[in-house]
Simulated assay, not measured.
Amino acid sequence: MRGPFSLFSHLRHLAPCAALVLVASCGWTSAGEGDGDAPPGAPTGVTATAGTATSVHVMWNTTARADAYEVYRGTTKIREVPGSKHMVDVTRLRPSTLYVFTVRARDAEGQPGPHSRAVRARTPATVADDRSAPTRPSAPHGRAAGSRAVQLSWSAATDNRGVASYDIHQGDAKIHSVGGSQTAAVVTGLRPGTAYSFTVRARDAAGNVSPATPAVRVTTPGTGDGRATAPTGFRATSHREDGAYYVDLNWVPPRVDGEVTEYEIHLDGRRATSLVYGGSAPRDRATYSFYVGRDAGVSHRVRIRAMLPDGTWGGFSTQRTVTTGPGR
């Protein structure tokens, strides 16, 4: 096999459940050196919701290493947003029309990743001379769903022609949208130990918007020090094969909203290698083994951290010390 795998000629033990791309640094270089050039992965969690008869709200999870996102309608690129954003309102559409959208990420070097799965949204029929806004949604409620997400709910608004969607605002910024038949939403990508304020507005097919609900205030649990996002159950052992020593790792991925597909391994206080799952990443327990040399009796300190779905690094696992065994 060619490409990044050739950097570890002695690497034999890869996770069997997914295609794995290694971004390794020969000689255990310091962090920031020797990074691989793999493009970003396909955005996950893509949704498309008709906001009015002429607009659709497209959202996705933040992708690691994304410098920008490209939004496609069918095969046509229609919008581009910076990597700090993960939603867009697509406007000037036709009423009563089915649209198909995909999103792909592009890194700082201009490399595009694969397209996301396709999502579909049908715009509702237009309503002539509709100037009546929906009523205000009532009974808003919110609770933390882990340290990085909030579950919101509300009672349905009413409208003379029907509610097309609900817009969720964080402060003055619209951050999410769901269909008019839904009265709940999960807001992700939040920070542990942080206070948030949300409001909800109803929107009809003509674009009329209701007054906002009273603010819902929720504080996510945690300290913000990374402990809530660190891999747990981290273990490190060593084995010998064909005259060489390998460090064998296993851990439980952090419990966050979205899939964790990238990890960074530190050996003896320096970044040793990164690994990226190209297929479905393990959710219950992950394993990984890598070559560390041919000398017996050498002790190494090792720890690991995950790239979170919002594109930031989570906290480090507990550090373990492992010693290569005696020679044979």
Rank of each mutant, 00 (worst) to 15 (best):
Thr237Ala: 12
Tyr263Val: 04
His239Gly: 10
Arg235Ala: 14
Arg255Trp: 03
Val276Thr: 10
Gly269Tyr: 04
Pro253His: 03
Ala272Thr: 00
Ala236Arg: 08
Pro282Gln: 02
Arg270His: 11
Ala286Asn: 02
Thr273Asp: 08
Ala236Gln: 05
Trp251Gly: 01
Val256Ala: 04
Val292Ile: 11
Ile265Gln: 00
Val260Thr: 14
Ser289Thr: 11
Ala272Trp: 03
Ala281Pro: 03
Val256Ser: 06
Tyr277Leu: 09
Pro253Asn: 02
Phe290Val: 04
Ser274Arg: 12
Ala272Tyr: 11
Tyr245Gly: 10
Asp284Leu: 14
Arg285Asp: 05
Val247Tyr: 10
Leu267Thr: 07
Asp284Ile: 09
Pro253Gln: 09
Ala244Trp: 14
Trp251Pro: 07
Asp248His: 15
Glu262Pro: 00
Gly269Leu: 04
Asp257Leu: 03
Ala236Tyr: 05
Phe234Asp: 01
Pro282Ala: 07
Leu249Asp: 07
Pro254Ala: 05
Gly278Thr: 00
Pro282Leu: 01
Ala281Gly: 02
Leu275His: 05
Glu264Ala: 11
Thr237Met: 06
Thr261Asp: 12
Glu264Cys: 06
Thr261Leu: 08
Tyr291Ser: 07
Asp248Tyr: 14
Tyr277Trp: 12
Arg255Pro: 01
Leu275Ala: 02
Thr237Cys: 06
Ala272Pro: 00
Arg240Ile: 03
Arg255Ala: 15
His239Thr: 14
Gly233Asn: 15
Ser274Ala: 06
Ala244Tyr: 13
Tyr245Gln: 10
Arg270Gly: 01
Ala286Thr: 08
Ser289Asp: 13
Asp284Gly: 07
Asp268Trp: 06
Pro282Arg: 02
Thr273Met: 10
Arg240Leu: 06
Tyr277Ile: 10
Val247Ala: 09
Ser238Asp: 05
Gly258Trp: 00
Tyr246Ser: 07
Thr273Tyr: 00
